[in-house]
Write a protein that binds this DNA or RNA. Structure first.
Lengths: 206, 206
DNA sequence: CCATAATAGTGTCAGATACACACTTAAGGA
DNA sequence: TCCTTAAGTGTGTATCTGACACTATTATGG
């Protein structure tokens, strides 16, 4: 029966400059003011925790239509100096096309390279680490890579996404052989002009 | 700031009769009284969520020293008829040797075969499903199997655990080849009398 | 228009891994 | 001592993984 506050915090990933970036917001309010933190906020009375994550993201960053997955719940009693606050952490993936519309709201929001983050408020550094590990692991056996790309993309772009997440270069031929045997990857009769030889476009079906 | 209650619920697994079992408690209190439910309860003011799971388990079932891992947080507004209650679900693994001491406390606690569960209170059936899937997946790349066995065990016992979790028979020779190349599996110079040819004992080191 | 630069796209071999499959060994009990 | 029962053991085949280098196609610039 003990009442306590529940928040959501979201690690939003995107790819910029062929490297993995995380969206952070500069805190204005009191605890850790001036520090960067993950977008997030309190869960309201009549909304699911998932819905709270979606709502907070839209309010603070303008981001919509994203891939969202629950990560882990952090519940150490002292993790928030204001009192007992349990947070349900999520991570989200958005394609770089959405990136442009993002940094709208009140608080200063900005993208940071995932391996060059500033000191974060609360236990948010730990949350980001957890999210990166999860993302790296899911890359092998799911289609999360596609969520960081626009609907139509080239295999080189997809490879760059994988390399950004794994933090290491991949062999082009091995990558293509493996990824092409996923039935969800659909080749299109369309080519993207790249400045040099045009690249075939693909999309992620289903 | 919206205050709401946070509970923990734990799916406790063990192996009995060479098949996977889940610990359930018969509810006495009002919502869903008479129904079986997962052991669990409210998170207190000054304890971490993990600590709450450990405490509730000990109170309701007498179980100690277990493998405990957070599963997922369920936060639909209507999931508890009493009001807004968010629950952090865990799963736990205990060796059958601990089983005997377990069903001590007030409420009626009992083991059920994982594939023959009664109708459960709240959304607990969904939580059990989620836990079984997680357990099945972790079996391949972690040492969770060992947590369901006493400290010293035979390879046949370990194989039976894997078969119970996966729900399918495994080839004895392939199983042994794979499991023996894990460096954490340590053969002992001790044999367990089985009624027939004695079986070599192993333990899980580190 | 020709040369150059840059990225797209393609195949093979070797080592490792996954999977199917059947007999021998050792002890207890009749 | 014979029978029963579970323990323990090896091989061949198909598949997957990982290393590795050249050709094709287009845009640009001289």
């Amino acid at each position: 029966m003990t009442p306590c506050s529940v928040t959501v915090d979201v690690v939003v990933f995107t790819i910029l400059d062929r490297s993995l970036h995380v969206l952070l917001i500069k805190r204005l309010a009191k605890p850790y003011s001036g520090r960067f933190a993950l977008p997030g906020g309190f869960v309201l009375e009549n909304e699911s925790v998932d819905a709270a994550a979606i709502r907070e993201l839209r309010e603070e960053t303008g981001v919509r239509d994203l891939y969202l997955e629950q990560l882990y719940t952090f519940g150490e009693p002292k993790r928030d100096p204001r009192g007992r606050v349990i947070t349900v952490a999520y991570y989200a993936l958005i394609p770089p096309t959405q990136t442009l519309h993002s940094t709208t709201d009140a608080a200063e929001a900005a993208w940071f390279r995932a391996d060059e983050l500033p000191t974060l408020a609360f236990d948010h550094a730990q949350i980001v680490d957890y999210a990166r590990t999860r993302l790296r692991n899911k890359l092998a056996y799911t289609n999360v890579g596609f969520e960081l790309l626009p609907e139509r993309f080239t295999l080189s772009e997809l490879q760059a996404v994988h390399e950004a997440i794994l933090g290491e270069p991949l062999d082009k031929r091995n990558f293509r052989r493996q990824i092409l045997q996923r039935p969800t990857l659909q080749p299109l009769q369309a080519w993207k002009p790249t400045g040099r030889k045009p690249a075939q476009l693909f999309r992620f079906k289903e």
